[in-house]
Amino acid sequence: MPTPLPPRGRGTAANPHNRFTAQRSLVEDDGWYQEVPVTQGTEVRIETAKSIITRNSSPDLPFDRTINPYRGCEHGCIYCFARPSHAYWDMSPGLDFETRLIAKSNAVALLEQQLSKRGYQVAPINLGSNTDPYQPIEREHKITRGVLQVLLRYRHPVTIVTKGSLILRDLDLLSELASLNLVSVMISLTTLDDELKRTLEPRAAAPKARLRAIRVMRDAGVPVGVLCAPMIPMINDMEMESLLREAKAAGALSANYILLRLPLEVAPLFEEWLHQHYPQRAEHVLSLIRQSRGGALYDSRFGARFRGEGVFADLLEQRFKAGLRRFGLSRRGEHSLDCTAFCPPGGQMSLL
């Protein structure tokens, strides 16, 4: 049976079983295979979450707490490292991850409760560490905007990572946060090639729209950088210097990059995509990934998972550092936000 094409606007047609289920299903060809992909609608379930701030102790991350307003992501990026998390909700990391989404309807109220607790220690909260806070369903649910309104009211620092141009809707909040040194934004920019973007990140903003978002935010005084992620050997790594150049021209102040990560169910999904869209170079791409991951497609070790090891990974790091120098960009993490202004409404600010 030929591999079906993804439904229009989706990253994959595959819906592999999640690793926690005891049952398996097998697809059989009934002779009615259609080459023209059908559309696949988006289903949004409402969740009443028990907590909203997630803590981490990863030495690879510049933050120790995050907020993810949504589970799953409609952008449908085939490489997304967060896909395996959908298995925890008894859904597939494949097409389910893009089409069966969960919105945390009480996120704003929960955040206020947690920030108001006695003894809360302030540090920047990151939005977008797992799934994109500005994916298309945010237009309707506006959870991310509600979170930003709370953070502004409490004078709490926040960092944002997104590839959604919808972030410009909240420019009023972002510019006010920026005036208080309470926000920094990283725009994820994977490629400048519209056709590659279409298959790699089907429902994410176009490259020009992301560059425009950088430009508009910088004009509004919002500190913004670019995250070249992921860098995929022989697919988009040759664009690294171009990405840095265009981001700098748009007003980016800083940059960082991440080498492609393929944990758990992401690896077979990416391999299928690779053989479907780049069959002649697929094995070469996979070989370079394995060379950078100790012979495997993924290495989860802290310190190695974002950068990789070996000749290709080392060369990529050297090219990135040279690009920073050439275009006058700093590395992400050098911009520090103000953690001293935090004050819950009705509370008393410190005199010192």
Rank of each mutant, 00 (worst) to 15 (best):
V161W: 01
L297H: 12
Q40I: 05
I143C: 07
K50W: 08
Y120F: 12
L182E: 03
R203M: 01
V216C: 02
E35T: 14
E74H: 01
E35R: 15
E112A: 12
Y154N: 13
P279Y: 01
Y154F: 15
I125G: 10
T39F: 07
L243N: 04
A250W: 04
H275Q: 05
P2F: 03
T48H: 07
I258Q: 10
L61M: 03
F63M: 02
A123H: 11
A252S: 13
A22R: 14
V122R: 09
R331D: 03
Q40D: 14
K321Q: 15
L110H: 06
E47Q: 02
H86C: 10
P84A: 02
H86Y: 05
A109S: 15
R83W: 06
L227N: 14
Y278K: 05
Q280T: 11
R331P: 01
L111V: 08
R210H: 03
D193C: 00
T190I: 02
Y33L: 03
M217P: 10
Y70Q: 12
S105H: 07
Q291I: 12
R19P: 09
K142I: 04
N126L: 04
A205S: 15
H335P: 11
I214G: 13
L351K: 05
R212W: 02
T42F: 09
R10L: 10
L227V: 07
V158N: 00
G225E: 09
I160K: 10
P202D: 00
L288F: 10
T3A: 08
Q135M: 10
V226Y: 05
H275R: 15
V36Q: 15
A103M: 03
S58K: 00
G310M: 08
P344H: 08
S175H: 03
E317F: 06
V311K: 14
A313V: 11
T340E: 13
A249T: 06
F306S: 03
T66A: 15
Y79C: 01
I67A: 02
E74I: 05
D193S: 12
R281P: 08
S105F: 12
L211A: 12
R24L: 09
G303I: 02
G251H: 01
P84S: 08
R83P: 09
Q113G: 12
S129P: 00
L196E: 02
D237V: 03
L316A: 09
D219H: 02
K248C: 01
Y278E: 04
D219V: 03
T199W: 09
E272I: 00
L244H: 00
G328P: 10
S58C: 09
R65S: 14
E239M: 10
C80D: 08
L115A: 05
A250N: 00
A213Y: 09
L168H: 04
T48L: 11
S165K: 14
N126E: 14
P136M: 08
A255C: 10
P268E: 07
Q318C: 01
D90P: 04
N18Y: 02
T199Q: 07
L262S: 09
A13S: 15
Q149P: 08
A250D: 06
L351D: 10
P62E: 03
E241G: 12
K197L: 12
F270R: 00
Q34K: 15
P2W: 11
T191C: 05
E334T: 15
P268Q: 06
H275C: 11
L152R: 15
G31A: 08
M234T: 02
G308C: 11
C80R: 04
Q113A: 11
L324Y: 07
R19A: 04
P230Y: 05
